[in-house]
């Protein structure tokens, strides 16, 4: 394993939900660049919806998920969907602090903090972190290559991040 990337499970990234004017064009560009950077033989760590997003992004760059070889990993997850009054889950005042902790743990990266995320609180905050917690161990021996996207344009906190084992 040399390369790991994170993208959000944003359904607007799916081709069946495409608009004339892409509401997530910057996010999409960042996702596609990160997924392309993973190369071939990408193993996806995601829930069912996240796996669809991952498969669509991989297809867009001309590859497909694998289950056997593990050259690279694509994790699908995101922060809270309760970040504002117009957010899908309305405003929860705890969302900002939760996302700040999550964001710091991702960008550092801090696998222990990710592994210890409060999943009950995450569920209350509509944060999709199951795959992130599951994959926390993958981030033990890597360093952050780039945080390509870090924003919440529609009340949901997204990160697109890339990690790799440091070259010797």
């Amino acid at each position: 394993m040399t390369r790991v990337a994170l993208v959000p499970g944003c359904l607007a990234l799916l081709p069946e939900y495409a608009s004339i004017d892409d509401p997530v064009d910057e996010l999409r560009s960042a996702c596609l660049a990160a997924v392309a950077w993973l190369g071939e033989d990408v193993r996806v760590i995601a829930g069912a919806q996240g796996a669809r997003v991952a498969a669509a992004l991989l297809a867009e760059v001309g590859t497909a998920p694998v289950t056997s070889r593990e050259a690279a990993y694509l994790i699908v997850g995101n922060g809270s969907a309760r970040r504002s009054e117009k957010a899908p889950g309305h405003l929860d005042p705890r969302a900002a602090e939760f996302d700040d902790l999550l964001g710091k743990a991702l960008t550092t990266p801090d696998p222990e903090a990710l592994g210890a995320l409060d999943q009950d609180l995450a569920a209350e905050l509509w944060a999709d972190v199951r795959a992130i917690v599951e994959a926390a161990g993958l981030l033990r021996d890597v360093e952050t290559v780039a945080v390509d996207y870090d924003d919440d344009p529609y009340g949901v906190r997204y990160w697109v991040a890339r990690w790799a084992v440091p070259s010797a």
Partner: peptide, 12 residues
């Protein structure tokens, strides 16, 4: 036969 102009509701 046409895509919505800009759809994000429920798809974030």
């Amino acid at each position: 036969r046409r895509r919505p102009a800009r759809a994000i509701r429920g798809l974030q």
